[in-house]
Design a protein around this nucleic acid. Structure first.
Length: 196
DNA sequence: CTCTGGATTAGCT
DNA sequence: GCTAATCCAGAGC
């Protein structure tokens, strides 16, 4: 039921696409907060100038170089955390999938307390969903293939149409269409890539 | 040690 | 559509 290590041990771009429709689960004490992943981006390694791991290993990005299926949480723009899941095939030294948006399922009341916003503004962006789910740097480097405080459940979804576009908020590698989202889903972020 | 800019968001025009 | 807020990581000296 929980996605296992082999799911993440494939090409980062494939995993980004296949994470759409899966369920991200965050447990806080005995409460579950969850949502369907509706928007992702793939960030690879030395072949991807937009990736944190492009120039090699640092203290911040080291989990991207380690075992797949672990969380990579980083802080940005002075206010926000972004959640990634380490994913790469065995020929690649680093890679991760950024979770950009989810569709809330369980724990919506708690998400509203955390965000003080209406339903459609709770989790429709990478910095928004981490706030809604109370994800910060303390959750960096967790094994998401175990049923702990953060994991991803499998889910059977049919008839979704996947759109790919350049990634959001970057200035390089705009020729790589490594952002994926579920067409028509209202919880996808409203951000637009620089070129499309 | 200092400086620069960011895988963003909210709020204003 | 535009931009301030906000602070840390990474790079350069």
């Amino acid at each position: 039921m929980i996605l296992d290590r082999s799911f993440y041990g494939r090409d980062t771009v494939i995993v980004a696409k296949e994470l759409l429709g899966k369920i991200l689960v965050r447990r806080i004490n005995d409460k579950l907060l969850s949502g369907i992943i509706v928007e992702t981006e793939a960030y690879r390694s030395s072949d991807d100038p937009a990736s944190h791991s492009y120039k090699g290993i640092t203290n911040r990005n080291k989990v991207m170089f380690e075992e797949v299926g672990y969380s990579y949480v980083y802080f940005t723009y002075g206010n926000y955390y972004c959640l990634n899941i380490v994913a790469k095939d065995k020929n690649s030294d680093a890679g991760a999938v950024l979770i950009r948006a989810i569709e809330p399922l369980e724990g919506i009341d708690i998400m509203k307390e955390n965000r003080n916003k209406d339903l459609y503004e709770l989790t429709n962006g990478p910095g928004k969903l981490t706030k809604a789910l109370m994800i910060d740097k303390r959750l960096n480097g967790l094994d998401l293939t175990k049923e702990g405080i953060l994991y991803v459940r499998d889910n059977n979804i049919n008839n979704i149409e996947i759109i790919s576009t350049p990634r959001i908020g970057i200035k390089t590698a705009l020729d790589k269409y490594w952002r994926f989202y579920i067409n028509g889903n209202r919880f996808v972020s409203k951000a637009k890539p620089k070129s499309i």
